[in-house]
Design a protein around this nucleic acid. Structure first.
Length: 269
DNA sequence: ATGGTGGCGGGGCCA
């Protein structure tokens, strides 16, 4: 007689949030962690040197942390319920002083946090840096996807992939964040074997993740969807939902970005 | 509506 052992499936929640200063936003992050209880939260623009990272406050909520920060600009972190393993803070072969990349293995998932350069404007050296950075990251992600079954690449990509991710495609046509070379670079990331978790599911129209500071922008939903969760095929098959959480964007003294969350059915961690 | 704001740092840069 064959005894069939039931496999226990548990939900997994992954999230990403550009907090625009973890120092300022820490109370909001702590509240959000308690409310949403993600298994992993990827943070961008922490703007904190590592010795100032609020690891104790996060540990009090049961979160481990891996982080790669710098003063005033950039900075990424991964908050995880399970200890992060195989932490990496540099893209192999890419010389970059800016702290924009963090990878860690959490349970069965290789989690990668990205803060893609903004690019400033199409005629700026920062735009060239953005495209070169994305090309180098693409090459690296190819190796990560080859090495791991479940991969989630989360962060502020500073690219609105399609016109439906832009409140006013006409107004934004050709601008940084929506230009065709940036969109091609974004599609090249998908080409290594990743899918936009948000587009795996039916979604309302005009869902965005970033709005300019200034009250009119949010009130009129003048936003862009530039924060993304990309998943490998194995995770895509397990993805249950993906959504933007507008709650924190309406808080007092908010980040200009809202968190993006994806849930999964995954084998017991 | 790419700043009419915000963060950092203490002027100017970055987003």
């Amino acid at each position: 007689m064959v005894l069939v052992v039931p496999v226990r499936w548990v939900p997994v929640k992954l999230a990403t949030w550009n907090v625009n200063s973890l120092n300022v936003r820490l109370p909001q992050v702590l509240t959000w962690l308690e409310e949403q209880a993600p298994d992993v939260l990827a943070l961008q623009e922490t703007k904190l040197e590592d010795h100032r990272f609020p690891a104790a406050d996060l540990a009090a909520l049961g979160y481990h942390a891996a982080f790669s920060g710098q003063k005033a600009y950039n900075g990424v972190a991964l908050l995880t319920r399970q200890p992060p393993g195989d932490v990496l803070v540099e893209v192999p072969g890419l010389a970059d002083n800016q702290r924009r990349v963090l990878a860690a293995t959490v349970g069965p998932v290789r989690v990668i946090c990205l803060y893609v350069p903004n690019g400033q404007a199409l005629d700026s050296p920062k735009y060239t840096y953005k495209l070169e950075w994305l090309a180098a990251v693409r090459d690296w992600l190819k190796t990560e996807v080859a090495a791991h079954d479940r991969v989630a690449v989360m962060g502020d990509f500073n690219v609105a992939p399609e016109d439906r991710d832009v409140h006013s495609p006409k107004r934004w046509a050709g601008q940084v964040l929506v230009s065709e070379p940036e969109r091609a670079a974004f599609r090249a990331l998908l080409d290594v074997g990743l899918q936009d978790a948000f587009r795996l599911h039916e979604q309302p129209e005009r869902v965005f993740s970033w709005w300019n500071y200034g009250r009119l922008a949010l009130a009129r939903n003048w936003g862009l969807r530039i924060d993304h969760i990309l998943v490998s095929a194995a995770l895509a098959a397990e993805c249950r939902s993906c959504a933007v959480d507008l709650g924190p964007r309406h808080h007092e003294r908010p980040s200009d970005h809202a968190p993006v969350t994806a849930t999964f059915d995954s084998l017991d961690r």
